[in-house]
Design a protein around this nucleic acid. Sequence first.
RNA 1: GCCCGGAUGGUGAAAUUGGUAGACACAAGGGACUUAAAAUCCCUCGACUGGAAACGGUUGUGCCGGUUCGACUCCGGCUCCGGGCACCA
Length: 866
Amino acid sequence: MQEKYHPQQIEQDAQQYWQTSAAFKAVEIAGKPKYYCLSMFPYPSGKLHMGHVRNYTIGDVLSRYRRMQGYNVLQPMGWDAFGLPAENAAIQNNVPPAQWTYDNIAYMRKQLQSLGLAIDWSREFATCSPDYYRWNQWLFLRMLEKGLAYRTTGTVNWDPVDQTVLANEQVIDGCGWRTGALVEKREIPMYYMKITAYADELLETLATLPGWPERVKTMQVNWIGKSFGVDVVFPADTRSGMPQALKVFTTRADTLLGATYVAVAAEHPVALYAARGNPELAEFIEACKHGATMEAELATQEKKGMNTGLFVLHPLTEARLPVWIANYVLMGYGEGAVMAVPAHDERDFEFATKYSLRIKPVIKPGDSTLEVPLAQAYIEHGITFDSGEFSGLEFQAAVDAIAAALEQNGLGERRVRYRLRDWGISRQRYWGCPIPLIYCGACGVVPVPDDQLPVMLPEDLLPDGSGNPLIKTPSFYECSCPQCGKPARRETDTMDTFVDSSWYYIRYACTGQDEAMTDARVNYWLPVDQYIGGIEHAILHLLYSRFWSKVMRDLGLVRFDEPFANLLTQGMVLNEIAFRKTETGRIIYFNPADLDIQTDEQGRRIGALLRADGQPVESGGLGTMSKSRNNGVDPQRLVDQYGADTARLFMMFASPPEQTLEWADTGMDGAFRFLKRLWKYVYDHIHPQLAAVDPVLRNDLGAELKSLRFQLHQTIVKVGDDLGRRHTFNTAIAAVMEFMNALGKLHDPSPAARNLIHESLEKIVLLLSPIVPHICHALWKELRPGTELLDQSWPQADRTALVQDEIELVVQVNGKLRGQILVAIDAQREEIERLALESDPVQKFVAGKTVKKMVLVPGRLVNIVV
RNA sequence: GCCCGGAUGGUGAAAUUGGUAGACACAAGGGACUUAAAAUCCCUCGACUGGAAACGGUUGUGCCGGUUCGACUCCGGCUCCGGGCACCA
């Protein structure tokens, strides 16, 4: 055994051993309990960042821990390989997206392997492989057959200069990111997946997922947004020229008598009708085209509107209500029209105040009245008033009565609605899975026959920023109609990359299966036992995956209802954002590694200077590590400098996994120091070649050794609980450090002590092995020559070591800590109270006062109330 | 704007079911070893305060209020920060 800890050599040896022994190859073994541990696969952006290290280390710790517990573990890895960044890179570097992607995969695979992850690499695949995306296409066609996929129009961001569709990310302050041109909304035909058909099940089965974080389930519930309300029809006032009735949905039918106008989207037929011969209105509608498409922008943009001059009739009072066009009403949501009740809706209140529209309160708090005029909308539930026959009712009674009245006169009906919208999957982009459809002049939209799948994506095209290059590639789009054989045109849109990531975890179970999307092996491995990934995927990816797997289930391809039994959402790894603005207003970002931090005498940060020129930079706060903001940290430097074990240990020790982590590498030294100390402990124990270790004489230990052994077995219990149940790897590591500190204080040359040290070191190595597997692999060889760490089971605590005679209780007076007492483990209440009262520090505080009450918390404390 | 989280020493954090706030580390300061440095080891380390010292006291978990014998933890109201908002992944 070498005297010093040399991670490079140790890690190389361990990784080589794992590879040559195919240690992590997962094989289906009937009857053996399986554990499918999956970390979200990476997008091959170029190199790993700290978020990846965090994600994959967590997965690896859990995988190795379960393996030691006797599970048949599957931990696979792959690549979410389609997507926008490859096209941007292609434009920038003149390299086809395919090549850029494959190069990145090759580099990042090496990086992952250097972390020593217990992955079955034989199952690796990338979603851009035709063997994979062929089944996207195949399933899409099945969904089309079942009516779960359909075609309709959707809104996109249109860059009028580049003549191309932009992703939301590519729209900056309403302008195209490359051209700076004002972006327009445009309606184009697209394909949608009917996720709303599964809305109820997606909602209901969340309740069957106790292994999911509450916050994620809450977010999904709110996202699906099931609401009970009423569809209300406002008939046209034909005398005003209004061409049609307007239907709106409301969850607040109790406020119907307070409706004072109706607003429609700028794209609504009534708006277009009103704009004919009204240039002012037409201009407003035109301006709305440049309005926001994103919900965040939509909700914060200035609310603007115009009166159409048209009227509808109130469905209950027949009062004439003006019809307005408003930029905050979207055609894509519901019916493209809303009823406005300014007195009881904040947005309507703001709008009505701005345009001097009528505000009519009809709801008041149960125990008081409203002060008129209102200073703000009263949005709480309350009692109706000023509502004719519907006055004086509480919320539900009012909704029921008004809904009944509407149903009676045929102008409304109760409806359940969802906030969830169908999933638009068409992308006007090159680097994605082709949608397998053909457009024939004679036959219309014709699916590509199954035996012609996959529709292969050419890998040699070079996008130039002006739209999807597939449109300009006849060898791709020219084809003949599968039905009539005449020349036809292939669909050039590709699928949303969320399709790729919606079922990759199923495909890992069927490596090599070329005849079908899945096979029987799925039934062994799935569902995933533990899924680990960033909290940023709490809604979209996880909801789409749940949906897609339910569709597969209904097609008989899989048997489970939910794909991920347990979910661990790791917090984001943040780093500082530093920048300067050039004279022309362009923003240049600086990597925090290139800055010198200035602190005050207390060590608090007050600013930062760019090392290159010594001048200050501006702070952009904290944000997730990203290429675009130049605040990523490449783990490679740390791995090269300290080794993978130190990087893994530090990452796990830094904070609990679900917590957002502000990146700082201070502490790496400490993690490295700990491993060096561990190495030294084993070396010092092994090296003297003293007497061989005797069987431990556990009943013959003195008080010091007995107490140390108690702590050892307490630590075994604690670490198992932290890794397996709590997933708090930081406290597991802290517990081992604490025990190591205690062990280090033992200076006892007796054989009994030496036995205990040996037992301790073995257990420490086993406990740490899921976190720092390389060093543990090497140390185990020294402690138990001829055996392999990988074959060892997770240690069990010795119950006899955990028996205690006495325990310490805390004594409080009026809830304040005043002292401790030592009591026998089986001491009775009276005995404990007597000891507590008699203890010196207590006497001081109790003397001369009357004891009112004593609170005893068994095993914890005594509180004396005076 | 809406939905979901978070805030504890100079720093990362711990306190698992309402029961000792700051475990375990980092940084810093002091010391030992060394020709020196690195490495290693030892000590101090929330704030204020009494004491020569031993050892105490008060206060303290983003802010304001509440419940309780007892609150980082529960309740009500805020502030700031992070994630998501349907075409970044």
